[in-house]
Nucleic acid binder design. Structure first.
Lengths: 149, 149
DNA sequence: ATAAAACATAGCGGAATAGTTGGGATAAGG
DNA sequence: CCTTATCCCAACTATTCCGCTATGTTTTAT
């Protein structure tokens, strides 16, 4: 019932990126320093994020990563699903749907697991990277326009 | 992000017990047969449920388990918390609350994890064993009064 | 050329999962 | 009484997953 470090670190890194990239790429090293996350491990996380198209990379010296889209268009759910797989409180599903629908198992699937999954996914899809970045800036007293002065 | 077999099997077993116990104890063997779950493994699950006071046991031949309370008074959340531990999408909590509240980490804790945890727990605490047992009986065309004829 | 970065992949130690095994203790029924 | 059904308890094991670390290779700005 827990998210792994992939999802937790990855989400932190994405918020960090949203906050610190002013339209420019940000090096993994700087994210790893600010967030206290191992560089090597972050590389693995970003390989997944890149493959999924959530970030773009710029190679070579002074390279780094940058968000592929506007933070307002990146759902937290998209990030978590890339790093954690389908967000579901249980693995199996096929068995029970194709099986008999009169079992206790099916009853629980429909009334408990399916509804929990729906609640989880609706929530994480209702939040965007911008929501989190804005909240972070608010707490830290950083006005959004400050970057453009 | 998944429930383990403890929680899944345990919940099924509890619904089975609610459905098949007409105020009488039910043997683990019969539950294990109906649900297709290893008897020995179920014993471990019921040891936890008993320790938590959700079921009572009757020893000896013709013994078995029986719910400690009315199904309407047993929340699904209580069962799952006994078998899975605190229902939370991440382990840590102390660190980040005692730490600096200006971190990205704290921002995510408050806006994502805490709210997910709240949603999950509210849901499982809004459902009772009776809800599931009733739904099961409805699907299987078994009127509740049938047992008293 | 050099250094800074992304990119790729392999391996590894520890913990958790999902059981199995093997034996008790207890009580009902014959 | 004695057998049998049942709960009870503890330890053992096989497998998988997690959370990294390590070691490179490739690309590019300076």
């Amino acid at each position: 019932m827990k998210f792994s470090t992939k999802g937790r670190y990855g989400l932190r890194a994405m918020v960090d990126l949203a906050v610190h990239s002013q339209g420019e790429q940000v090096s993994l090293y700087s994210i790893s320093e600010r967030q206290g996350i191992s560089m090597n491990y972050l590389e693995q996380v970003f390989a997944m994020l890149k493959k999924a198209g959530l970030v773009k990379s710029i190679k070579g010296a002074q390279g780094g990563y940058i968000l592929s889209a506007n933070p307002a268009d990146i759902k937290i759910g998209s990030i978590l699903r890339v790093l954690e797989g389908t967000l579901s409180v249980i693995d199996e599903r096929g068995e029970v749907t194709s099986g008999n629908q009169t079992s206790v198992r099916y009853c629980i699937q429909v009334n408990v697991w399916d509804r929990m999954n729906a609640a989880l996914n609706e929530f994480v899809d209702s939040l965007t990277l911008e929501d989190l970045a804005d909240n972070y800036r608010k707490i830290n007293g950083i006005g959004e326009t400050m970057y453009y002065i």
